[in-house]
């Protein structure tokens, strides 16, 4: 079965074609297309989240890259939530209409289910059940994945997502926004043990996260350490690097502590890291040290499957269509769709 997947839940417009026997056939993001100017001539500078003007050309481009035509597609999957209602409606309307026009089934996909199953686009695939840490600019969640559609929320962010805390702390340190990756680079120059930041919510049971306070802690540390105007520029830069180091260490250690706790609680041996922040080098190293060392396994999908993309929607949609689920000739989106409300899919029908 060949499935076209459309992702338009927030900033990115992503389209992909996944074949359940051959794997991913093509996978494109509008932001990458713009750079390569493959729309034939001048590429207009379209606003972020202008999915209306981006989606249809991107579908055409993706089919062309896969060497396919509309009649080669057996089903269409689109993100139906959670996300921005206006953005979701674009992908849903286009996806549902294409499926109708092509005479194939359509299926709405939960954005977070896409992220949770994205590691299964890689070889070797993690086997069910596993624990997933979804850590990005918008999310910090721990989820137990028992099978497709059987999810248990273990922990969630109470305020700022980890990636957001990175981006905002970077801004406080004078880096451009969003500067999470720049902060990580600055941290490489930081001196260990210069500052110690708290590990929020690790001193009590539970798997929820709160990173907003770290941002404030970074701000107050910066104000205190740089209060003296006499400090030479070079030393100021070193202090900023030291703060970046301590901040990154606090986030990483907090995530490691909670992941170990989640594995203990569920009895699972497999941890999957997904979301943009999972590209962080120190996080990957520390997770491997802390978890892979105890005969557990840690899986990381490649970064292009970690951030928002159409491939994960095509893949999750294929699992649901193969399981017999499809949407009647209507569509709806739900900006606050809850992951635990998804129907389970049993492929052994």
């Amino acid at each position: 079965m060949r499935v076209l997947g459309i992702e338009t839940s927030c900033d990115e417009t992503g389209v992909a074609v996944y074949d359940h026997r051959q794997g991913l056939l093509a996978h494109t993001l509008y932001s990458q297309i713009g750079v390569h100017a493959e729309f034939g001539g001048v590429v207009p500078e379209l606003a972020s989240r202008d999915h209306v003007r981006k989606t249809v050309p991107l579908v055409a481009e993706t089919l062309e890259r896969a060497g396919l035509q509309g009649r080669d597609i057996d089903g269409v999957a689109y993100t139906a939530g959670p996300g921005l209602v206006g953005a979701l409606l674009v992908g849903a309307a286009i996806g549902r209409s294409l499926a109708w026009g092509w005479g194939v089934p359509a299926v709405p996909v939960h954005h977070m289910e896409g992220h949770l199953l994205a590691p299964m686009l890689e070889e070797p695939r993690p086997g069910f059940p596993f624990v997933a840490l979804l850590v990005s600019g918008g999310h910090t969640q721990l989820v137990e994945v028992q099978s497709v559609g059987r999810y248990r929320m273990l922990g969630d962010s109470l305020d700022d997502a980890a990636g957001e805390a990175f981006d905002k702390t970077a801004k406080l340190l004078g880096l451009p926004y969003p500067g999470g990756p720049e902060l990580a680079r600055l941290a490489e120059k930081g001196r260990p043990d210069r500052f110690r930041f708290p590990r929020p919510m690790t001193d009590r049971p539970g798997l929820d996260f709160s990173f907003s306070g770290l941002k404030t802690f970074a701000l107050h540390t910066l104000q205190r350490e740089l209060a003296d105007a006499e400090i030479p520029t070079q030393e100021r830069e070193q202090i900023k690097a030291d703060i970046a180091y301590a901040f990154e260490q606090a986030v990483v250690e907090t995530l490691v502590i909670k992941c170990r706790r989640a594995l203990d609680e569920t009895g699972s041996r497999t941890l999957v890291l997904a979301g943009g922040v999972s590209a962080n080098r120190r996080l990957r190293e520390r997770m491997r040290e802390a978890i892979a060392g105890e005969a557990g396994e840690v899986f990381y999908p490649r970064p292009e499957y970690c951030t928002d993309n159409g491939a994960m929607i095509a893949f999750a949609g294929a699992q649901r269509l193969l399981g017999g689920q499809q949407e009647p000739l209507r569509f709806a989106v739900d900006p606050r769709w809850r992951l635990v409300d998804l129907p389970a899919i049993d492929r052994r029908r």
Partner: peptide
């Protein structure tokens, strides 16, 4: 419930 920062979701 949790009142999360809307920086990423905008709304």
């Amino acid at each position: 419930g949790a009142v999360k920062s809307p920086t990423y979701t905008l709304l």
